[in-house]
Design a protein around this nucleic acid. Structure first.
Lengths: 150, 150
DNA sequence: CAAAATTAGATGTAGTGACATATAATTAGG
DNA sequence: CCTAATTATATGTCACTACATCTAATTTTG
């Protein structure tokens, strides 16, 4: 549906660029709502899931908090506290680095790898909702978004 | 920059669709970060700004909380409490509806209209960052996003 | 090397998102 | 018309973003 109708704005967009902004924010909200619902049965929030996937990418190496921040979709999310939550669920473990006692090494556990592979299996998660556009359109959309950010 | 490089994922995307998802979430985060920074000098958050613009669209008519929720970009945001914040800043006033004593009428104040028009003047806000793409590409991007949501 | 600057991370706070529950007013049904 | 259902909004809780501040460890520099 066109973005104007979805948010029922009577005031017309002053430019196609303004519409792009609202459209991206609105679409991201739509997407992450669906994402959050799909992850809920697994006891993970989208941010925790994102972080856990980064840790799987590193496994069996650990990651420091800084590496996690660097790779997170949402940069200024608070990695320390996200790790706290994952620790409570025993999806990661954490220890001070030998090489640098300021740094913290975070590693994904077997339990963490397990929950991720369960989610992989049910991985209509994100992608199923996105099939309204063709693969060619998906490529085009990615190019436009990359270009937009400069 | 390509989204893979921005989030430095070594694990390749399993599909162009997964990349679309990450790309939209990442771009929205990028956008709203800039937006929040631009609004900060005016003492408004993006959500408060959005709500205030809806109220300007209604002015001089009031809006009920339900109307606000209906038109907000982020539907499940808590309109009651957003209005609380705007009330503290005297950008709106609020009174119980005569016609329906459950309902609340919210109206933008002169001070609220003022701050919006100040922001309008400096309205490189959202749009300035978006000029990396051409007007034609902006139209195309909007069409793809609308289509994506079905 | 010792003091200063930088870096890694933790922690506190305000605002918000998602969601459940509560309350009061209105409408609907028998 | 009186009770039950619905509606409009408020409130409480948990997780998270943005941001500021703090501590401890390491690096830089004179």
């Amino acid at each position: 549906m066109e973005i104007e109708k979805e948010i029922k704005q009577n005031l017309k967009f002053s430019s196609e660029y303004q519409k792009v902004a609202v459209n991206i924010l609105y679409t991201a909200s739509w997407l992450s709502t669906h994402h959050a619902k799909a992850l809920k049965p697994f006891g993970l929030t989208p941010q925790q899931f994102n972080l856990l996937r980064i840790l799987r990418g590193q496994h069996p190496q650990p990651a420091t908090i800084n590496l996690l921040i660097d790779r997170m979709i949402d940069k200024s999310s608070n990695a320390s506290r996200l790790v706290d939550r994952l620790l409570e669920k025993e999806f990661v473990y954490r220890c001070v680095s030998d090489a640098d006692k300021r740094a913290v090494n975070v590693t994904i556990t077997e339990k963490g790898l397990n929950v991720l592979s369960q989610i992989d299996k049910k991985s209509e998660l994100l992608e199923h909702q996105l099939q309204n556009i063709s693969p060619e359109e998906a490529i085009q959309l990615n190019q436009l978004l990359d270009k937009l950010r400069g």
